[in-house]
């Protein structure tokens, strides 16, 4: 629970902070579309360099972005491995035979057991897992005494590696761009920006103000509900529930023991909040004046022009090159 970062806004004074949230949201959308349109690894790398430049100019610490990438590390690793293993076109870059013998089977079980029982003492568990996987693969490739149980070829192809790198870079760009938006925009401004952008939906009878209010309340209640979840976890832990250990079945039961009270509490809170809102003269759908206003500056127009040019170039490259 402690790893969940909500309301990541960090105060600053660079141009990214001075931009109108509407232009930032639109820019994010345009750049994300561009990232999805690129087909060549070199182009996506140029885009990554561009994004890193934005970070530098915007005065955002790279470490902060790296922290934002941490929750999707497993997804990145999975996507990378999947691409590397299953794409079998292009030149062979690496070829080795993985042999499972009686001795290294025992060693492998020992390594896995050691990892299983020691991982709780290791600070960077993800790195530890990678080291263990690479270690086992190296052992299977180089050390196979005893009688042979099975063997298979492990081949990495150029297309597989390029494809894997391409997808990873694309994911990193998308997460980085979204993180830039949340790091440099106050939740209130973000919400207001979204409300203004969605305003045309009124034509199809969708009230953007209500959507924005829902998002704002959701944002506001995330820390409160996390706090509540922590309290329930502590209460359950004091009665013997261990949320970090146990079999899959136990874990499912532990999650249920957390979810049921969380749902009940959330419904009670939402009922109270609805009463409080009504008591303060909130009428859904009625026009409201707003304390916060947004101002569009020339820099927002420049950023929009830049992003449109990037998107147009991407479409050009995709269609003609």
């Amino acid at each position: 629970m402690k790893n969940i970062i909500v309301g990541q806004y960090i105060p600053g004074n660079s141009f990214l902070y001075k931009m109108d949230p509407r232009s930032k949201i639109i820019a994010l959308g345009l750049l994300m579309i561009s990232a999805f349109l690129f087909e060549d690894i070199s182009h996506i790398v140029y885009m990554l360099v561009g994004v890193l430049l934005i970070l530098k100019i915007g005065g955002i610490p790279i470490m902060r972005i790296a922290r934002g990438l941490r929750p999707i590390m497993i997804l990145l690793l999975f996507t990378f491995s999947f691409q590397v293993v299953f794409i079998k076109t292009g030149d062979v870059i690496f070829d080795t035979e993985l042999t499972l013998s009686s001795v290294n089977l025992i060693l492998m079980i020992l390594i896995i057991l050691t990892w299983y029982f020691t991982r709780r003492y290791i600070k960077s568990r993800f790195l530890y897992l990678i080291i263990v996987i690479v270690g086992i693969l190296t052992m299977l490739s180089l050390f196979s005494p005893g009688f042979k149980i099975s063997s298979s070829d492990f081949v990495i192809y150029e297309d597989g590696l390029l494809g894997a790198s391409f997808i990873m870079v694309r994911l990193i760009i998308i997460v980085t761009l979204s993180t830039i938006l949340t790091l440099t925009t106050r939740p209130t401004d973000l919400n207001l920006g979204l409300e203004r952008i969605l305003k045309p939906l009124k034509l199809v009878r969708i009230n953007s103000e209500e959507i924005a209010l829902i998002i704002s309340i959701a944002l506001r209640y995330i820390p409160t509900l996390l706090d509540e979840a922590n309290k329930i976890m502590l209460a359950q832990a004091s009665r013997g529930v261990d949320f970090s250990e146990g079999k899959l079945k136990d874990k499912v039961m532990q999650i249920i023991s957390l979810l049921v009270p969380m749902f009940i509490i959330s419904f009670k809170r939402s009922d109270d909040l609805a009463n409080a809102m009504e008591a303060r003269s909130f009428i859904p759908g009625n026009p409201r004046t707003r304390i916060h206003i947004l101002t569009w500056h020339y820099r927002d127009t420049l950023v929009m022009i830049f992003c449109v040019v990037v998107l147009a170039s991407t479409i050009f490259v995709r269609v003609y090159l």
Binding site: T188, N191, R220, T224, R269, L273, N275, A276, A279
Partner: peptide
């Protein structure tokens, strides 16, 4: 209302 957390609507 009784619960200060359940009537705080704004983000700030």
């Amino acid at each position: 209302f009784q619960n200060p957390d359940n009537q705080f609507v704004g983000v700030t």
